[in-house]
Nucleic acid binder design. Structure first.
Lengths: 196, 196
DNA sequence: ATACCTCTAGAGTAATACTCCATTAACGGT
DNA sequence: ACCGTTAATGGAGTATTACTCTAGAGGTAT
């Protein structure tokens, strides 16, 4: 079966193993056994454990960010967009628990230059889309005149924190539980005085 | 020099090495050389790399959370407390960059039961303090009636995100730069309709 | 003084990330 | 249809490194 879905098998095996055992304790052997792949193949696709990590990370963040960007483009009033973004974040996390776990607990600093560059790039791209959206609405007077960085942080920060809590301990309430409150609060945070 | 400041030397050496090289690539040898400590001593205090990690993590989070709790107790109006919390978070991050890096990029899931328990405990304690504060102000009508979890997330989520951005890329603006906007926005988020 | 305990020391061991090369499949050009 | 080149696979071998083990130094109490 000489095809490159081997790569995918490895990535998904790596993800589950990483989440299950923790990255440090996850051995390459365990991963390659789960993926049913030989040592040679494994190291053919990923030069070392770190680059495997990076690949998993990148795969996850691309999927997540892609969906997020889509929410921005589907137009609608500012408040609807805010709600959509929040809902997306919560639902994505709930529906992709392993990925979310991996992403939320792993920064990319100290990783390879390549990855750093690619992630920065993805972030920048997303950020510029958001910035445009923000500027437009600030100009129209629907949003408070604050910097795009702060807007993004205000939008996603709280959701991320709630999600992290849920990911860390089984006991915490599911993210989507908080959607309603989160939208209310976040909208108050960002809406210009007077705009509904 | 048979004293237990050896332990501290190890912890600080570990932190710097972890941040410098990344946890995975930081070897125990490098750490013990930086700490100027023998192999025996190192493994006398920390049974393995993971428990060293955990000790570093715990040390950091305790310092951070301690300061945070202090902000809550020093009274004042709700808005002042919000501002103080935000300022504290930003300043602590800026002043303890290495710790902040380590903490923000490292979740504790998949780590030892002990650590998990201790962190949960610390979180719970902080959370109950915050909850009390929130309930009081909700009752007085200064804060919107939302769950303490969402209040906490709203308070610290944005700040965390901004700090992470700063920690990840040298280019981002220093956290404290955003303090003013952050306070404005966060206060709008939490304040009950009508309270200044 | 002696027994005891914490801490230090460094050589030794086992695990494991990674290398190497030989073999096989896939593909493109003529 | 053939061949050359590249991509993929297999598994045995190596080197690094987390961790172990045992012997002993320093310090304290009885």
């Amino acid at each position: 079966m000489p095809s490159s879905d081997t790569r995918d098998k490895i990535i998904v095996a790596a993800l589950t193993t990483f989440v299950e055992k923790g990255v440090a304790s996850a051995t390459m052997q365990a991963i390659r056994e789960r993926a049913e792949v030989s040592n040679g193949s494994l190291f053919h696709f990923f030069a070392n454990k770190q680059s495997l990590c990076e690949a998993v990370y990148l795969e996850g963040i691309r999927d997540y960010q892609g969906g997020l960007a889509a929410q921005l483009e589907q137009g609608g009033g500012a408040r609807d967009v805010v709600a959509a973004l929040l809902r997306y974040h919560l639902e994505w996390t709930e529906g992709n628990r392993d990925w979310a776990r991996f992403l939320s607990e792993r920064g990319y600093t100290g990783w390879g230059e390549d990855l750093a560059r690619q992630v920065e790039q993805a972030n920048t791209k997303l950020m510029s889309t958001v910035s445009a959206w923000v500027r437009r609405h600030v100009a129209e007077g629907t949003l408070k005149p604050v910097s795009p960085e702060v807007v993004v942080a205000t939008l996603l920060g709280p959701a991320q924190l709630l999600c992290r809590a849920w990911l860390a301990s089984e006991s915490a309430a599911a993210p989507t539980t908080h959607l309603r409150e989160l939208v209310t609060v976040t909208w108050s945070a960002l809406a210009a005085r007077g705009s509904l």
